[in-house]
Amino acid sequence: MDKRANEWSILRTVYDIEECAGVDESERPDFLLSKDGHGAVPFGVEVTELFRHEADARSVRHPDYLDALFRGGPYMHKDDKKPFALSWARITDKDGAVKAENVPVIVTPPIPEADHRRAIATTIRSKGSRGYAVEDGHVDLIIRDRYFPSGEPLPDDYSVTALLSDGVRQALIDSPFREVHLISISRARKQVIRPLIQLMLTERLFLFGKAVEGALGRQGMDEQWKYVQAFAEYMEREGLALDLLDFDGLPVAAYRSSAVGLGRDWGLEIFDLADRQAGLRSWERRPLSALTDDEVAACSQFVSDGEFSWGHYGNPIEPADLEFPKTRSVQVVEVPRDELP
């Protein structure tokens, strides 16, 4: 798949381009999209893929590369010699019977999750520093994450708080992007999508609500608007300004293309406001006793110590036919020498 075809594949994974009034290739950003309705203006989409290093990228772009190395072929680049250093293994069954000798392998040490998250943060910062010319419009970023050569475990529930750690949260805040969509790939080679800014906003509201109930025990929080209005005040005190919008008589806290609130049944509600000209008027703030400095400090401590887990992944609109190196990845269990047969 050539570069442009791969970029189209990434774009179509997140956006239903058939519903767009126009989709045009560009340079910075990669695409310009426009939607019908509400006087929407074109917005930009930058797309990229995340690899651990260029050697992994070459092994994906040339799926026969590693297979050729195992058969004695040359390295495509001198920098590949270290990450793709060949070793020779003996393969046994669980009883120790030798099944094969001198099998060429590439041994990859376990990859710390913290390194992975730092790489995501670095990608957001790198792409955010490029500068984009989209007149009157915003820019979204899509990252197809191929940091793990064999895919990720992607459990049914995962920690949003952990996902946003190691610099990811601050990189999102510092970036110019309205939303950052992370496409993750499971070990079964299935894709899922996670909107990181929307998740960040959702996590903050959930943990703030728990702080109000637990750490503060604040009295009188008996209506949904009080939680959301107090949440906006708290985030402002923490240096992140939110807009309060009126949705069906209740406030929602909006940040860039997302908004969160509490429904009439007190359930957490998440809104995708990709087009902020959707007609929601501002919420007129009501009298509510302000958070004290001690309450803000208590909330901050509770939030920093808390964790928000989520069990939702977005489905790709058009699942891509992904390329993978023509090799088999296995997990090697090291057995102490004195336990070998």
Results as ranks from 00 to 15, higher is better:
Ile143His: 13
Glu213Met: 10
Glu318Pro: 02
Glu238Tyr: 02
Ala274Lys: 09
Asp157Arg: 15
Ser126Gly: 12
Leu207Asp: 12
Val303Gly: 02
Phe206Lys: 05
Asp136Ala: 14
Val168His: 06
Val332Glu: 02
Lys127Cys: 03
Phe206Gly: 01
Glu18Ser: 11
Ala162Cys: 00
Arg52Asn: 07
Asp36Lys: 14
Ile17Ala: 04
Asp140Ala: 08
Glu152Pro: 00
Ala297Trp: 05
Phe31Arg: 04
Leu32Arg: 15
Glu25Val: 14
Arg125Val: 03
Leu244Cys: 04
Arg28Met: 04
Pro287Thr: 08
Ala259Pro: 06
Val160Phe: 06
Leu199Glu: 08
Asp275Phe: 11
Asp115Trp: 00
Pro287Arg: 11
Asp93Gly: 06
Gln198Tyr: 08
Asn315Gly: 07
Ser129Gly: 11
Asp145Ile: 15
Phe308Leu: 07
His181Asp: 10
Ser9Tyr: 00
Arg52His: 12
Gly263Ile: 13
Asp174Thr: 10
Ala68Gly: 04
Arg204Asn: 14
Leu11His: 02
Thr13Ser: 05
Ala171Trp: 03
Gly209Glu: 09
Gln331His: 08
Glu223Ser: 14
Tyr147Pro: 07
Leu69Asn: 02
Glu203Ala: 15
Asn315Ala: 13
Arg189Ala: 14
Val47Met: 04
Val252Leu: 15
Gly128His: 04
Cys20Asn: 05
Ala55Pro: 03
Val252Tyr: 03
Trp88Pro: 01
Val180Ile: 02
Val139Gln: 13
Asp321Glu: 15
Pro42Trp: 12
Thr123Asp: 06
Gln277Lys: 09
Phe208Pro: 03
Val330Arg: 15
Val333Cys: 01
Leu66Arg: 07
Trp88Asn: 11
Gly214Arg: 10
Gln219Met: 13
Trp266Leu: 08
Leu141Tyr: 04
Phe206Val: 09
Tyr65Cys: 14
Leu240Val: 15
Leu201Ala: 11
Phe231Arg: 05
Asp115Cys: 05
Leu201Ile: 14
Val98His: 06
Ala211Trp: 01
Arg125Ile: 01
Leu69Pro: 02
Gly72His: 09
Ala230Glu: 02
Ala68Val: 10
Ala188Cys: 01
Ser26His: 13
Glu101Phe: 05
His312Thr: 12
Thr92Val: 11
Ile185Val: 15
Ile185Asn: 04
Glu46Phe: 04
Glu323Val: 08
Gly306Pro: 02
Arg144His: 07
Glu152Thr: 08
Gln170Asn: 10
Glu46Thr: 12
Pro251Val: 03
Asn102Trp: 14
Ala215Phe: 02
Asp30Trp: 03
Thr202Ile: 01
